[in-house]
Each structure stands twice: as C-alpha cells, then as structure tokens.
C-alpha cells in the first residue's frame, strides 16, 4: 500500500508530465504550420500525427486510461467509439467526395 503522500506526488507528476508533453506537441504542430519546411501534404500529415499522439497523451495522463485489466471497459469503449467514428467520418468523406467528383 502506498502512503497517501506518495500517491499525491506521483499523481502531480503524472499531470505535469502530461501537461509538458501536450505543450511540446502543440508547439510542434503550430510551428510546423507557421514555419513550413516541407510540402503541404507532408505538413498536414505531421499535424494530424501530432494531434493523434497528443490525444493519446491526454487520455493517458489526464483521463488515466491505461492498459490495466480493471480499466479495460473504458479503453474498450474508447476503441469502439473510435471505430464508429472512423467508419462514419471516412464513409461520409468517401461518398460525398465521390459524388462531387461525378457531378463535376
């Protein structure tokens, strides 16, 4: 059993790590757009990749979603929602871009 004070400093450290990581990732994404050094497609890919990493950081350090067995339900619900979101968003984009292409 950890003492309350130990877990307090541990939790404070968790939030601080998450905050610093999120600041670095945000700064990197804005810097990539503000001072572009690669092409537009590559910049967009960098921005989206950084966003995905930052979302994972927020889930891990702010929402305490982990791989522990007892937290699996929450993780599974997130993954299920992610599958639904990917299906609906990519489906919408594919169908409507295809429709526009045909209407041109």
């Amino acid at each position: 059993m950890t003492k309350p004070n130990d877990s307090r400093s541990q939790e404070t450290r968790g939030y601080t790590i998450g905050y610093v990581a999120a600041l670095v990732l945000t700064g990197a994404a804005f810097a990539a757009v503000r001072w572009p050094s690669v092409g537009t497609t590559a910049t967009l890919a960098i921005v989206f990749a950084l966003a995905l990493i930052q979302m994972a950081v927020h889930f891990r350090f702010f929402l305490h979603i982990g791989l522990a067995r007892s937290a699996r339900d929450d993780l599974q619900l997130i993954l299920f929602s992610a599958v639904i979101i990917i299906l609906m968003v990519s489906g919408t984009l594919v169908i409507l871009f295809n429709l526009r292409h045909r209407m041109m």
């Binding site: 994404a29 804005f30 757009v33 572009p36 537009t40 967009l44 989206f48 889930f59 702010f62």
Partner: peptide
C-alpha cells in the same frame, strides 16, 4: 473532470483539423 478533459481532447481535433489545416500554405 472527465467533461473538462474531454473538451480539451475535442479542441485538439479542432485546432488541428480546422485552424492548422486551413492555414497550411
């Protein structure tokens, strides 16, 4: 707390997809 942290995650998507994507030159 969950609500507040969740809103921040949605904002990550907004600044990446809306603002940064729109500003890429």
């Amino acid at each position: 707390g969950l609500f507040w942290h969740f809103l921040d995650i949605v904002w990550i998507a907004i600044f990446s997809v809306v603002y940064l994507q729109g500003l890429i030159r």
